[in-house]
Design a protein around this nucleic acid. Structure first.
Lengths: 254, 254
DNA sequence: CGTGTAGTTGATCGCCATCAATGCATGTGG
DNA sequence: CCACATGCATTGATGGCGATCAACTACACG
């Protein structure tokens, strides 16, 4: 009880953590979780803040608790590609290499559960199940990166945009947490600006914009506002996206 | 001694294996390596053979001993993207998911050191250092995939081809094994056909061809034969490739 | 020889980048 | 409150890069 009060004074701890049962730490059960809690610090970042900078060294190893982080890779001449979008329960920072290949910047306000790499590794060595969970995650991330390689290398702009929307749709719904009320379930919050969508899809702002309005005039989506859309014809969207995506076979299932 | 004869009868075993000290198994020292040797089978594939087929299930978990394997992802309409090129000491197959996202096809003749997934996992559970090595590898692979995302999303065709050549150059030289004699060190063996290079870079055969001849007429490379090139001006090649690649700062260092 | 596969080169076309103008919010200082 | 600036999104006009289609060469193989 005194413990609980203590924890509340320290802010959000594992017991109240929204990703406690989805992130790496879910590999540790309650009797052992304190080993992580003891070495963890909770940090807040505002939208636009840079957490990691490309080619600079960092000790950070963190679990994203809340918010969205973009991983960007910049070429010497300034061109930039977003190579990953991270959100709740994703991992930021690399256990293996001290210098990060990419920059990490907050798309929204972000809350991180941070560790010092060495300290986390110490716990890792004592608990193989943690390593196994990390391996599983890395493996899934690699598969996803491969998927995006296919998108970047082979799809046209319209297909890219369609696939991006479907990807967001799946993210929001697979998203561990509670589902929004039924009538608004088809609404996707883009979160990203046009510039960021373009940076992710390997196209330009203008092309993103044009294809969104085309989807709108074709009756496939509606635009609630510039950052929120409603899918009105998910089948045609799937056709466009070149994906056999059956993760939500019946939209009004629940 | 009887043991040694026994091993020779079974063909190439770990002691003679060219990737013994580079692949995952390097995490196990000699006293323990037999745990893998016992459950391993050695298999040969010919160029063109398919090892894994997209969306089909497989128990295979293998280390590539020799040769090159391409990982391809095919879209419903037939378009295809090569999402990875694997070679000596790389890993084929996924510990986590039974169905493979990609097809795996032999570019050259290939020799694999094969395990059944379950059996390998059993050894994995007993030796955390194996898991750590796998994690390290997955992490490196993810970084490389991110790099290729940048290439696919942001580079022009000429830059893509240049970067591909430099990538091969680095692969061959970083390549664990013995270096070729000094005067031929600048010769790159493409190994892949134009179609495969194109499939990897997200462009077409014709564009690959055109850019190779452009590099040739610009005096940056020479074509020994259709599948072998000699780099004659690596600095300009690096400029084209948009890479600050200092892995081999002085070409004639050794 | 003919046939098939791989590669090169040329001509044309379409998609998307680029440049430019406008609309539309929000914020700021006079 | 208005004038102005700033950031973001949309829309239009134009051009270039790379895809596509097609012809041709080279080479291996039966």
């Amino acid at each position: 009880m005194a413990e609980l009060v203590h924890e509340m004074h320290l802010g959000l701890r594992c017991a109240q953590c929204p990703v406690r049962h989805h992130a790496v730490c879910s590999a540790l059960d309650t009797p052992h979780i304190h080993e992580l809690t003891d070495i963890m610090t909770h940090r807040h970042f505002s939208a636009g803040e840079e957490i990691l900078h490309q080619d600079e060294t960092s000790q950070l190893f963190a679990i994203i608790v809340k918010g969205i982080v973009k991983l960007t890779h910049m070429l010497p001449d300034g061109r930039e590609q977003i190579v990953g979008l991270l959100s709740g329960s994703d991992i930021l920072g690399d256990l293996e290499s001290a210098v990060s290949h990419n920059s990490a910047e907050c798309v929204t306000d972000v809350e991180l559960c941070c560790f010092r790499r060495k300290q986390f590794e110490a716990v890792l060595d004592k608990h193989p199940e943690l390593a196994h969970h990390l391996l599983k995650k890395a493996s899934a991330d690699l598969d996803e990166a491969h998927d995006w390689m296919t998108v970047l290398g082979r799809l046209g702009a319209a297909e890219k945009v369609a696939r991006f929307i479907l990807w967001l749709y799946r993210e929001e719904h697979a998203g561990c947490v509670h589902r929004p009320p039924a009538q608004s379930r088809q609404i996707i919050h883009l979160q990203l600006k046009r510039e960021e969508i373009a940076g992710f899809l390997g196209i330009t702002i203008e092309t993103v914009s044009r294809n969104l309005t085309r989807l709108k005039t074709d009756g496939i989506i509606e635009m609630v506002d510039t950052k929120s859309i409603r899918i009105t014809d998910i089948d045609r969207l799937r056709d466009l996206a070149m994906t056999y995506d059956d993760s939500e076979p019946h939209p009004d299932f629940m």
